[in-house]
Each structure stands twice: as C-alpha cells, then as structure tokens.
Amino acid sequence: TETYETTDETEARKIAEELKRRGLTFRIERHGTTIRIESD
C-alpha cells in the first residue's frame, strides 16, 4: 500500500496516472483541501 497526500489537484492527477500506468488500483479520498490517494 502506498499513500500520497497533496493539496494540489494537478499533482493528484499525476499520481493517479502513474499508479494506473503501473497497473495498480487505488482510491481517492478528499478531506477538505487535502486529496489522499491510497493504492491497494
């Protein structure tokens, strides 16, 4: 499991693209301005 936290929408998108490219599944949670991406 890898966890990323960012407040930057663009960075979050880049992380999501990278995880997809590596064939990982992940979920995105939003907590206020923080975007949390957690891979399975």
Rank of each mutant, 00 (worst) to 15 (best):
residue 1 T to N: 10
residue 1 T to S: 11
residue 1 T to R: 14
residue 2 E to K: 11
residue 2 E to V: 14
residue 2 E to H: 13
residue 3 T to D: 03
residue 3 T to W: 14
residue 3 T to E: 05
residue 3 T to V: 15
residue 4 Y to H: 04
residue 4 Y to I: 04
residue 4 Y to Q: 01
residue 6 T to W: 01
residue 7 T to A: 06
residue 7 T to M: 08
residue 7 T to R: 07
residue 8 D to P: 01
residue 8 D to N: 08
residue 8 D to G: 02
residue 8 D to K: 04
residue 9 E to S: 06
residue 9 E to P: 14
residue 10 T to K: 10
residue 10 T to V: 12
residue 11 E to R: 06
residue 11 E to A: 07
residue 11 E to F: 09
residue 12 A to E: 01
residue 12 A to K: 00
residue 12 A to Q: 01
residue 12 A to L: 04
residue 13 R to W: 12
residue 13 R to K: 10
residue 13 R to I: 11
residue 14 K to I: 10
residue 14 K to G: 06
residue 14 K to R: 13
residue 14 K to D: 06
residue 15 I to L: 05
residue 15 I to V: 05
residue 16 A to M: 15
residue 16 A to G: 06
residue 16 A to E: 06
residue 16 A to F: 07
residue 17 E to W: 12
residue 18 E to T: 08
residue 19 L to A: 00
residue 19 L to E: 00
residue 20 K to T: 14
residue 21 R to C: 08
residue 21 R to H: 06
residue 21 R to I: 06
residue 22 R to Q: 05
residue 22 R to N: 03
residue 22 R to L: 06
residue 23 G to K: 05
residue 23 G to C: 15
residue 23 G to T: 01
residue 23 G to A: 02
residue 23 G to W: 02
residue 24 L to Y: 08
residue 24 L to D: 02
residue 24 L to I: 11
residue 24 L to W: 07
residue 25 T to G: 10
residue 25 T to H: 14
residue 26 F to N: 02
residue 26 F to W: 05
residue 26 F to Q: 02
residue 27 R to Y: 08
residue 27 R to P: 02
residue 27 R to A: 04
residue 28 I to Y: 05
residue 28 I to N: 02
residue 28 I to C: 15
residue 29 E to T: 15
residue 29 E to M: 14
residue 29 E to Q: 10
residue 29 E to G: 06
residue 30 R to P: 02
residue 30 R to N: 05
residue 31 H to L: 11
residue 32 G to S: 03
residue 32 G to H: 04
residue 32 G to A: 03
residue 34 T to M: 13
residue 34 T to N: 06
residue 34 T to Y: 09
residue 34 T to L: 14
residue 35 I to F: 09
residue 36 R to M: 06
residue 36 R to L: 07
residue 36 R to N: 02
residue 36 R to Y: 08
residue 36 R to S: 04
residue 37 I to F: 04
residue 37 I to L: 04
residue 37 I to E: 01
residue 38 E to F: 15
residue 39 S to W: 15
residue 39 S to P: 07
residue 39 S to Y: 14
residue 39 S to C: 15
